[in-house]
Amino acid sequence: MKIMHVSTRLILGGSQENTVFSCAGQADDGHEVLLVFGPIEGPEGTMLPTVEAHGGIVPVETPDLVREISPRRDLRCLGNLRRLIREHQPDVVHTHSSKAGILGREAAWRESVPAVIHTIHGLPFHPYLAKSKNAVYIAAERWSARRCHTIVTVADAMRDQALAAGIGRPAQYRTVRSGMVVEPYLDDSISMLETRRNLGLPEDAFIVGTIARLAELKGHDDLIDALSSKMREDPTLHLLWVGDGYWSDRLLGRIRDLGLGDQVHAPGLVSPERIPDWIRAMDVLAHPSYREGLPRAVVQGLLSAKPVVAHDLDGAPEVCIDEVTGLLVRPGDQQGLATAIERLRSDPALGLRLGAAGRELVRGPFDHRSMVRELEAVYRTVLERPGTPR
């Protein structure tokens, strides 16, 4: 099978990891895999070295595939994608993210690709955007849904929200969990204390960690607002922020202004292979994001048997089940966020129970091999339909 994946930005991020693991697994299964992406810019890192190190994925950068709306560049990109499709003759074009999804599906549809698939990792429209922008995004997604055979979602919540907005038909949708290499998260051979020593973190601190870009809507301000007073009273309460982003200087400036620089650890960008170590060093993984598909960081925390606190929105409740595998907080409820974290600090047995239940819930469905198998089944279902061109 010839498979072409199209993704807007190959930065260090959840949807990009999903895409690269899909490509790698499919290449390992003997398929010809092409990964098309736009320019990689900014402080958020790149997955390109991982792609190149694999050796079985053909990476192609197309210069006009950019996140921003740019009619002239978008038209050039559409032409480039059509040219690549004609050159490589893929059986499947699988698009990821909003811009790549809109242009990639249109290009594949015009070129009569036998199977056109799109994955919704997170919807481009949300309550924190202006109504006019949301209207444009919804119209574009409705239009693009008519130009693909199947829409994959990483969470049932994404399917439900898309259908509520009039995007696609129920029969088009299939939920496939966002896979990852689970074994490093399941490895309990190294203790939390030893990990902290290796990473230079304080052994006696209670560490609340996040794995997220330092960016808008990721909830770092909520953690500051929820915990800063308690942190000033208690020097053993620490934050660990793994990630980088455009808000890094502002957020770390807030920390310095509050006099909490010694209690907030910000290692910046970390390679995906090192994420299990940083999670192992945490007492609690907090994910107070305001917009997600199904947050991989939450799944990674659960795989690591850590208690998780997350906002009750989008796909998070499908894995962070309140009082069963984690604690959910109403978005924006900073007091509720502080209370949930304090509950876990004061009741270690609760954290152990939630973490164990969470690990058991996610260890199978989020294995990257499960994702690759399920995606191949999606492709073959489309390709084996009567009338599909060969």
Rank of each mutant, 00 (worst) to 15 (best):
H5P: 08
S7M: 12
I11G: 00
Q16I: 03
Q16A: 07
E17F: 07
N18Y: 06
T19G: 00
S22T: 06
A24W: 00
G25E: 00
G30Y: 04
E32S: 06
P43L: 02
T46D: 02
M47R: 02
M47C: 08
M47P: 01
L48F: 03
E52Q: 04
A53I: 00
H54T: 03
V60L: 12
E61H: 05
E68L: 09
I69P: 06
S70E: 10
R72L: 13
R73C: 15
L75S: 15
N80Q: 15
I85S: 03
P90N: 13
H94A: 07
A107L: 03
A108V: 13
W109P: 02
T119E: 06
H121L: 12
P127T: 15
P127D: 10
L129T: 01
A130G: 11
K131M: 12
K133I: 08
A140G: 07
W143K: 09
C148R: 00
C148F: 01
D160W: 09
A162R: 01
I167F: 02
R177Q: 05
P184W: 04
D187S: 04
S191N: 14
S191M: 13
L193N: 07
L199T: 07
D204H: 14
A205Q: 08
V208W: 03
I211L: 12
L214C: 08
E216V: 10
K218G: 07
A226S: 09
A226F: 01
L227E: 01
S228G: 13
S229P: 13
K230L: 09
E233K: 08
Y246D: 15
S248G: 15
G253P: 05
R254M: 11
L260R: 08
D262L: 10
H265V: 05
H265F: 03
V270H: 06
E273F: 07
Q300C: 14
G301E: 03
P307A: 14
H311V: 11
L313E: 11
V319Q: 08
D322F: 12
G326C: 15
V329A: 10
L344W: 06
P348C: 11
G351H: 02
L354W: 00
G364Q: 13
F366Q: 05
H368R: 15
S370H: 09
M371A: 10
P389S: 07
